[in-house]
């Protein structure tokens, strides 16, 4: 444990609260503090549009970062995140089905179901004699993600009128968030808390699976539970905000450099940083562009970071 970790977490909590307050104040329709007391319209924009939107962005950022942290430790691979093992592809397909066939109703339930089904399909494909080697898990993830994206393309091809809606949703964003979406996103905190209970197990699993067994960790069951919780959290995030990439990859990585590898500190730090990152990404896109999907921004900054990570690991 690094002695500075609790201080960093406190700092991040303050930073998140300030970021959320600023994000609420920012927006294309400039609202002054005074107008809140004089204009019902200003109050409406603030309370019905900006506040839920900022809270949802924070929750989704937190969820993606926590799921990414869990998967990186689970697979002992800092390149892993919910997108790589097919979890979010499953979620995206589920949500698209809802848009095409039910005009968007049940999007959350289907996205969540899709994420779970995809994760456990990969899990069972990768399973060999009661164990899940990491290599086969990642490869099955890539294979399934390819299949799912083909199905997704087919749906879009046949979608007709709702194509635009699917496209926009897939790129990921918070333009349509209302309070009921925030309610949908709240269970992210429950899933995240569940994952946090396994922080010590993950510290040990990060060494080596055989070694973890020697230290009393039931490796396969821990993997199953953590995969399920990660799929749960990712499924909700995808249902609420579409596919937003790279938050789950970058945040844990940067936070590991800052607070160290102990998951008891890494989880809260990554959760807070993920929330801050997405709150700002959303605030910037909606203020300075005509509400461009935020997934475009995270990908623009995330992909080069991923390449940098890959290169520096290849050198090491």
């Amino acid at each position: 444990m690094r002695r500075t970790a609790p201080i960093i977490i406190l700092t991040l909590i303050c930073a998140l609260l300030i970021s959320m307050a600023l994000a609420v104040a920012l927006g294309p329709s400039g609202i002054s503090f005074g107008s809140l007391f004089t204009s019902d319209n200003a109050w409406m924009i603030l309370w019905e549009i900006r506040v839920p939107r900022v809270i949802a962005a924070a929750l989704v950022g937190c969820g993606l970062a926590v799921a990414g942290t869990a998967m990186q430790a689970l697979f002992r691979n800092p390149m892993a995140d919910p997108y790589i093992i097919g979890t979010s592809s499953g979620g995206a397909l589920g949500a698209t089905l809802a848009i095409v066939f039910f005009a968007g109703t049940g999007r959350t339930v289907l996205a969540f179901a899709g994420a779970m089904i995809a994760t456990f399909t990969v899990y069972f494909i990768a399973r060999r004699g009661g164990k899940i080697p990491v290599e086969t898990l990642l490869l099955s993830g890539v294979a399934l993600a390819t299949l799912l994206s083909a199905l997704l393309s087919f749906l879009m091809y046949t979608a007709g009128r709702s194509l635009h809606q699917i496209m926009f949703w897939l790129m990921g964003g918070f333009w349509n968030i209302a309070w009921n979406d925030v309610v949908v996103a709240i269970p992210i905190l429950i899933g995240g808390a569940g994952i946090y209970l396994f922080a010590r197990d993950l510290n040990i699993l990060a060494l080596n699976e055989e070694d973890a067994t020697h230290l009393g960790v039931n490796v396969e069951r821990t993997k199953q539970i953590l995969l399920a919780l990660s799929a749960f959290v990712t499924g909700i995030a995808v249902a609420v905000a579409g596919s937003i990439g790279f938050i789950g990859l970058i945040t844990p990585h940067v936070m590991r450099l800052i607070v160290g590898p102990d998951h008891r500190f890494l989880f809260p730090a990554a959760a807070l940083a993920g929330a801050i990152l997405l709150v700002w990404a959303d605030a910037l896109t909606r203020t300075f562009t005509s509400d461009m999907p935020v997934g475009i921004l995270t990908a623009c900054f995330g992909a080069p970071f991923f390449i940098y990570l890959l290169r520096s690991r290849m050198k090491a």
Binding site: N203, A206, L207, N208, E210, H214, R256, P261, D262
Partner: peptide
Amino acid sequence: PQDISIGFDY
């Protein structure tokens, strides 16, 4: 065990 590689910086 025989010398194990510890991937993270504990």
